[in-house]
Structure formats: structure tokens, C-alpha cells
């Protein structure tokens, strides 16, 4: 494992910790898209079916369990926790995420590395992850004002994607048979979605101002 991959995993983990911290500390999930969070649950469950069949390392197994557990915990809080669910901005979270699930699954049936149950679900999870942030980004755009923790959550998620691209570039040059065009292309698409957000994030950081997205 190279340093970029590790940095990517850690920023992914930090983003989840930031989100859990926001929900627990403020007892509020305002500004957070439940739809994006539900998509992440589907992404992790579909991708980590190999928990039962392949063992790669203790690190991999533990991280997979952490990602599944934390994403379930977030969705549980937003749906079930009495105080938290009252703060959910339902009227701002109207993205039709079923289309993303359906589209990703159809794409996985057409484009996959092998026509097996696990590989179809793996490809599905890769495609779905690429678009899972869209309901959250649309919600940020609609509310305009982004609170600090929500902004940092999206920032760390974007950083995770950027580090994974550096990781692939590194692997491409250091490993003789490194080719995984499904993950790399989807990863590029996914990272591109963050470009706009990053632009405004850095402007607000440079001006030491509150993050605001244009309507």
C-alpha cells in the first residue's frame, strides 16, 4: 500500500468522523442529504460482499467493517433518532436517487470485469459511488449557506477521491500489470463532481469567509 492510498483511506475515514461528530455534538443533521447517505450504505454493502470470500489484510477487513457500520449508523440516526431526524431538511433533499441506483445497476450489467454475481455488484458499487455525492451537492447548492462541519465533510470526501487518483497514478508506474479502467474512469468522473465545490471552498478559505455557494 502506498502513501497516497493510505492518505485517501484516512481522509475518507476523517470525513465520516466529521459527519458523525456533527450529528452527535449538535444533535442535528441539517444540510446533510439522507439520500447520499443511503446510497453510501448500498455502495458499501454491494462492494464488500467479498468480506465473506476474499481475505486481503486485517487492515482491509477492519476498514470495510468500519465503513459499513458507520454508514448504517448515520442513516439510523437520520431516520430513527428523535432529535436528529427533526433537523433533517427533507424539502431540500429531493434528488431522485432511485434513478442513480437503477442507472448504475444497468451499467454494471453492461460493463464489468467478469459476469459473476460478485463482480456485477462490485462494478455497480463503483458506478454508484461515483454519483452518490450528487444529492448532497445539489442540497448544498440549494441551501446556499453551508455550515462549517458540512463543508469540511464534503471537503474530506473530495480529498479522499483526489488521493485515490494519485494512488492509481503511482500504481500505474510502479506495478507491471496495473490496469483497472472501471475503477479509474469512475473515480475520475466522481472527482470531477467535486471540482466546483473545491473552487468555492478554497475561495472562502483564502478570504477567511464563510463558505457560500452561488445559487
Amino acid at each position: 500500500m502506498n502513501i497516497f492510498r493510505f492518505a485517501g483511506d484516512m481522509t475518507h475515514l476523517i470525513s465520516i468522523v466529521v459527519l458523525l461528530l456533527k450529528i452527535y455534538a449538535t444533535k442535528s443533521c441539517s444540510g446533510i442529504s439522507l439520500k447520499t447517505q443511503e446510497l453510501y450504505v448500498i455502495v458499501f454493502l454491494a462492494r464488500y460482499l467479498d468480506l465473506f470470500t476474499d481475505f486481503i489484510s486485517v487492515y482491509n477487513t477492519v476498514m470495510k467493517l468500519v465503513f459499513i457500520g458507520s454508514s448504517l449508523a448515520i442513516v439510523w440516526c437520520m431516520r430513527m433518532h428523535r432529535a436528529v431526524k427533526r433537523t433533517y431538511d427533507k424539502e431540500l433533499d429531493t434528488f431522485r436517487h432511485y434513478f442513480l441506483v437503477l442507472g448504475s445497476f444497468v451499467l454494471a450489467l453492461l460493463l464489468h470485469e467478469k459476469f459473476t454475481f460478485q463482480e456485477i455488484f462490485w462494478a455497480f458499487s463503483i458506478y454508484l459511488e461515483a454519483v452518490a455525492i450528487l444529492p448532497q451537492l445539489v442540497m448544498l447548492q440549494r441551501s446556499g449557506n453551508v455550515d462549517n462541519l458540512t463543508g469540511q465533510y464534503v471537503f474530506f470526501l473530495g480529498a479522499y477521491r483526489a488521493f485515490y487518483i494519485l494512488n492509481w497514478i503511482y500504481r500505474f508506474f510502479t506495478e507491471p500489470h496495473f490496469s483497472r479502467w472501471i475503477a479509474c474512469l469512475s473515480g475520475l468522473v466522481q472527482t470531477a463532481f467535486y471540482a466546483d465545490f473545491f473552487y468555492y471552498y478554497f475561495i472562502s478559505w483564502k478570504n477567511n469567509a464563510k463558505l457560500q455557494l452561488p445559487a
Binding site: 462492494r47 470470500t53 482491509n60
Partner: peptide, 10 residues
């Protein structure tokens, strides 16, 4: 494992 093919990334 999986026909010699494993996804080693998360």
C-alpha cells in the same frame, strides 16, 4: 479467491 482476481482497494 475469486478466480485469481481480487479487489485490494476499499
Amino acid at each position: 479467491p475469486n478466480g485469481g482476481h481480487m479487489h485490494d482497494e476499499l
